[in-house]
Computed example of a mutant assay.
Amino acid sequence: MKKMIVLFLIGLFTLQSCSVSSEITYHKDSSSTFVTDIDTREFMSEMQAMTPDSLKQKEFGEIDKLPTVWTSLYDLEKREGKIKTQHPDTVRIMKKIFMKSKQDDRKLVGLSFKMDHFTADDHQVLKNYNKREKLPLDQNIYNAWDGKTLTIDTENFNLRNIEETLRSKSSKEGTEKIEGMMMMFFKEIGTTLKFDHKIRTITGKHDWLKQTDEYSVKIDYDLKTLYDKEAKLKNADKKIVITTE
């Protein structure tokens, strides 16, 4: 099951048809929830068009096994008898990461992933977990949040986790072309940061971060600038502090 999930993620992140929307919601109890919705319609069509037999592979044959309601990674692996660890911290994290699929006439049309109410301690454990699993997580999930104030480290305005995921599954020749692939295949990449309470103040500026309403800001990545070492931004503060009511 996990192999199939990773296969889809890599495919989606390396096709021009990729459509991914992400949102991080910051709760007043100092936790945060990260949700990514992936539209797989064009991905499946392109896979079938490029390699007609690809959807007959074992991984794609397991589509019926994907849950259509939120199901934790722990329950998915337990169901298959493939739980590799009983370490309490890892088990706790696996029970807070969920996935579900959207299917139409037994065809996969969408995948959603959720990290539910993660605390600062959960994120620290997740860093170690992800060193092994290489999941393409948004770097901004690691920004410091205390229930009222979010401190954004703009060094996290990058795609390192996605790059590492691609490198871990690519040939040596492929890993040397990662930056070119990112520039070529991604159309738009953005993450919405949403708060339970209204935003009171924003200190610091960055060209890629804009407030969209009273409760939200959005980060839109400029890939050309991101991979151009000589590119200059008009606003590029190292820290941005958002305080809520």
Rank of each mutant, 00 (worst) to 15 (best):
V217D: 01
K82W: 00
H117P: 01
V91K: 15
K95R: 14
T175C: 14
V91I: 15
F157E: 07
K114M: 09
F8E: 04
I162R: 01
W70D: 13
G174E: 11
E23K: 09
M115P: 06
F185S: 00
K100C: 07
S45P: 01
L76E: 11
W145A: 02
E214F: 05
L55S: 04
Y74P: 03
V35F: 03
T225C: 12
I162Y: 04
L126F: 10
R200L: 13
K84G: 06
R200Y: 03
G180P: 04
I219E: 05
K229S: 12
Y221R: 07
S54Y: 12
P52C: 02
L111C: 02
W208V: 07
T68A: 10
K172S: 13
L193P: 08
F34Q: 02
L111M: 09
D37Q: 12
T149Y: 03
E230S: 15
R41H: 11
T203N: 13
R160K: 14
E77K: 14
T212A: 07
R167K: 15
E214G: 15
S31C: 09
H27F: 06
H206C: 11
S216G: 04
I189E: 05
A144I: 10
D138F: 03
D53C: 02
S30E: 13
R160S: 10
K82M: 05
D104W: 10
A144Y: 09
Q211E: 13
N161Q: 12
E163T: 04
K28N: 03
I97E: 03
I189G: 06
H206G: 12
F186Y: 15
K65V: 07
V35S: 01
F60T: 06
V91R: 15
F98D: 09
D53F: 06
V20D: 09
M183L: 15
T25P: 01
V91W: 13
V217Y: 03
K198T: 08
K187L: 06
T14N: 13
K131D: 13
K134N: 13
I83G: 02
F60D: 06
E59M: 12
V6G: 02
E80R: 03
K58Y: 09
E59Y: 12
M4P: 00
K177L: 13
P67G: 09
A120F: 12
T25K: 13
K198N: 05
T68N: 13
Y142K: 01
Q139W: 08
